[in-house]
Amino acid sequence: MAGHKVPYFQNDAGHATIEIGVKEFMCVGANPPFDHPHEYLDMGAETEKVCPYCSTLYKFNPALDASQTVPAGCSWNSQAA
């Protein structure tokens, strides 16, 4: 699989809220093989969005770049087979 243009995030630790530095992203739930369908989410004009599969609340934080999260470690990169 080629690299993503839209960042992907995971929530293995079960955080109620994850701050991210983008408004368009993919949520995978937990890391594979325990992931849910990879859901494209767009906050639009809002500053937060709830994933309809895992109920993680994502909040936009403009101080973060596209790969940073608070808490740290919630970015996800697919591994080529």
Rank of each mutant, 00 (worst) to 15 (best):
P62A: 09
M1C: 03
N77D: 04
V22E: 11
Y40H: 12
G44Y: 12
S75T: 13
A16H: 13
H38E: 12
F9L: 06
T17W: 02
H15D: 14
N31D: 04
S75Q: 11
A66M: 14
A81Q: 12
L41G: 07
A81M: 09
Q10P: 00
G3A: 15
T17A: 08
D35P: 02
Q79M: 09
L64K: 14
S78R: 13
S78L: 15
S55E: 15
S78E: 15
P62T: 04
V50G: 03
V70N: 14
C51G: 03
F25I: 00
I20R: 03
S67Y: 14
A66G: 06
C27P: 03
F9P: 07
I18W: 01
H15K: 12
P37H: 09
T56R: 07
E24T: 15
N31Y: 11
C51L: 08
M26W: 12
H4C: 03
T56S: 09
L57G: 00
Y8E: 13
C74M: 02
C51W: 05
A45V: 05
Q79E: 13
V28E: 06
Q79P: 01
F25A: 02
Y58Q: 04
D35I: 01
I18C: 01
E24A: 13
F60P: 02
Y58G: 07
C54M: 08
P62Q: 12
C51E: 06
F60A: 03
G44R: 02
F25V: 02
N31C: 08
A81K: 14
E24N: 07
G14A: 01
D12I: 04
E46D: 11
Q68V: 07
M43S: 08
A63G: 01
P7E: 13
H15N: 06
G29V: 06
H4S: 08
C74Y: 07
C54T: 08
P33G: 04
A30F: 05
C27D: 04
K5N: 02
S55Q: 13
M43K: 05
D42P: 10
H4W: 00
A16W: 10
Y53W: 11
N31H: 15
V22D: 10
P32S: 04
V22Y: 08
A81N: 07
D42E: 11
A30Q: 15
Q10T: 00
Y53N: 11
T47E: 10
Q79A: 07
S78N: 11
P7M: 02
W76C: 07
C27V: 03
H36W: 11
H4Y: 12
I20S: 05
Y8F: 03
E48H: 09
E46C: 00
C54F: 08
G44S: 07
E48C: 06
C51Y: 05
A2E: 06
A13H: 01
Y8A: 13
A80L: 06
N11S: 06
K23F: 06
C51H: 10
C27W: 00
V22N: 11
E19H: 13
E48S: 15
V70W: 03
L57W: 02
V50N: 06
C54I: 04
F9I: 05
F34P: 00
G21D: 10
H15T: 03
V28C: 11
G44M: 08
L41H: 12
T56I: 01
